[in-house]
Design a protein around this nucleic acid. Structure first.
Length: 268
DNA sequence: CAACCTGTTCGCCA
DNA sequence: ATGGCGAACAGGTT
């Protein structure tokens, strides 16, 4: 279920194993999550190394190990990280298990839209090179957002919000939450936003990102009842602001929920 | 049983 | 070359 804040939550699960050695690595090299990855090197180089650092950037995570090993993990649609007691026997969808003296670190992903990458050597792997500014960073400023919207001016704002090259970590529920809060119809072409709407849009993006990280990122708690997320999938779901029945349509290839009253289409 | 799903990537087309 | 869109990927849930 991972978007920005859930990714942060899962990253912290493996921090229980920081500074501890990896005694053994269990995986099935043929699984789709290892596509394009040298699993023999992964097993060889991680065995005997220690977990020294974890970093999340948008929906991407990397776990660094002593000796210059980098384990990249993307959770896809159904991935999750957790720990179990030492000696844990992997279940059906536990595709990668790092056995440590006191616990096992586990990556589970039934649908396997996720991905495991591996790099061993000097410097930073190319798949972990700097990309878009993070939403909470100073570089995520009005100019940056405006230029990105302009570049994708013909696409609906909902679709543009899902582009990881511009809004790292935003997924389907966050995108709907942001547009609902900014009072912008999801089908609005990005280039049609007024200056005031762009300001509201950037503000809502930062707010939802920061609050989700604070609330969900630490212990997977529920956002406040006032958030759209609690109503968007219910049949008969209504806007938590004014009670209008939520509209639903596929926009940007994803099911989108919005309030036609709070988020009127332009000209309506 | 059919439809649906908190994500990315590819090929096609403009 | 770049942007936009629909399909594909797999398995669980409703």
């Amino acid at each position: 279920m991972p978007e920005l804040a859930e990714v942060e939550y899962y990253r912290k699960q493996w921090d229980a194993g920081l500074r501890r050695p990896v005694d053994a690595v269990q995986l099935h090299a043929k699984k789709r999550i290892f596509r394009g990855t040298d699993t023999r090197a992964l097993v060889r180089d991680l065995t005997g190394s220690r977990l020294v650092q974890s970093i999340a950037r948008g929906k991407q995570m990397v776990f660094r190990f002593s000796g210059g090993s980098w384990l990249g993990i993307h959770l896809g649609m159904t991935g999750a990280l957790r720990t179990e007691a030492a000696g844990f026997r992997p279940l059906k969808h536990d595709h990668l298990v790092l056995q440590q003296p006191k616990r096992a670190l586990i990556f589970r992903d039934p649908r396997q839209f996720g991905r495991v990458r591996f790099y061993h050597g000097r410097g930073t792997p190319d798949w972990w090179s700097e990309a878009a500014p993070e939403i909470g960073s100073p570089d995520f400023n009005a100019r940056y957002v405006s230029e990105f919207l302009k570049r994708h001016r013909r696409a609906p704002i909902k679709a543009v919000l899902l582009l990881q090259s511009g809004f790292p970590g935003v997924g389907n529920w966050m995108a709907d939450e942001i547009l609902w809060r900014a009072r912008i119809a999801p089908s609005t072409p990005s280039g049609d936003l007024t200056a005031a709407q762009r300001t509201a849009f950037r503000r809502a993006t930062r707010f939802v990102s920061r609050e989700a990280l604070r609330i969900i990122g630490n212990d997977n708690a529920d956002p406040p009842a006032s958030w759209l997320i609690h109503y968007r999938w219910k049949s008969g779901g209504v806007c938590p602001r004014d009670g209008t029945p939520l509209a639903r349509a596929t926009i940007g290839g994803r099911t989108t929920a919005w309030c036609v009253s709070c988020q009127p289409a332009r000209g309506a």
